[in-house]
Amino acid sequence: MRSVIYSCEEHVEEALDDWVYGEETFPEFEKLEDADGVWITCGYCKNQAIYMVGNECSDTKYRK
């Protein structure tokens, strides 16, 4: 199971589709903030990622 897919503006729909197809559930979806100049690369090209698609937390986040 992938925990997160990073994507640029051009590939965000592909990232959402890949996540739903692979995990059979809806992902968390967030726009990334500029984290002190940290460059995160898109998982589909070499552009800067601006979206995070997936589940950044562990599967135990919502367990009691």
Score class of each variant (00 low, 15 high):
H11F: 00
A35Y: 13
I40N: 11
Y6F: 14
V53Q: 08
M52L: 15
C8W: 07
T25H: 05
E10L: 10
Y51R: 05
A35P: 05
C57A: 10
G43S: 15
M1N: 11
E24N: 15
N55R: 08
D59A: 05
S3D: 14
R2Q: 13
V38K: 15
Y51T: 06
E56S: 01
A15S: 01
H11E: 01
K31S: 11
K64P: 08
Q48D: 12
S7C: 13
S3L: 03
S58A: 06
D17Q: 12
A49P: 03
R63V: 09
Y51P: 03
C42L: 04
S3N: 09
E23I: 06
W19I: 12
E23S: 05
T41M: 02
E33L: 09
P27S: 06
W19G: 05
M52P: 04
G43N: 15
R63N: 08
T41H: 09
V38T: 03
R63Q: 10
S58D: 10
S7Y: 00
E28Q: 10
A35G: 07
C45K: 09
G22E: 15
I40Y: 09
E28N: 10
T25F: 05
K61Y: 08
D17L: 12
M1G: 13
V53R: 00
P27N: 05
E9T: 06
I50H: 05
T60Q: 00
C57T: 07
E10Y: 04
E9F: 02
N47L: 13
E33N: 14
E33S: 14
M52K: 11
P27A: 08
E56D: 13
D59L: 12
F29Q: 12
Q48K: 15
I40V: 15
H11L: 03
E9Y: 06
Y44E: 01
D59V: 04
D34C: 08
E33K: 14
E13L: 13
A15L: 02
Y44W: 00
V12Q: 11
T41L: 11
C45N: 10
E30G: 06
V20Q: 11
T25W: 04
K46L: 13
E56M: 04
S58K: 00
N55K: 06
Y62M: 00
V4N: 10
H11P: 01
S7R: 04
A15Q: 00
R2N: 14
V12S: 08
N55I: 07
S58C: 11
A49H: 03
G37V: 01
V20L: 09
Y21F: 12
E14D: 11
D36V: 06
Y21I: 14
K46Q: 14
L16Y: 08
E9S: 12
G54Y: 08
D18Y: 02
Y62V: 00
K61V: 08
T25A: 13
A49W: 04
L32Y: 02
V12W: 03
V12F: 07
K61E: 09
R63S: 04
E13N: 10
R63E: 12
E30R: 09
D34S: 14
W39Y: 10
K64N: 14
N47Q: 15
K46N: 15
E33T: 09
E28R: 06
V20E: 14
Y62E: 00
D17H: 05
S58M: 02
Y21S: 13
M1C: 11
G43T: 06
D59I: 05
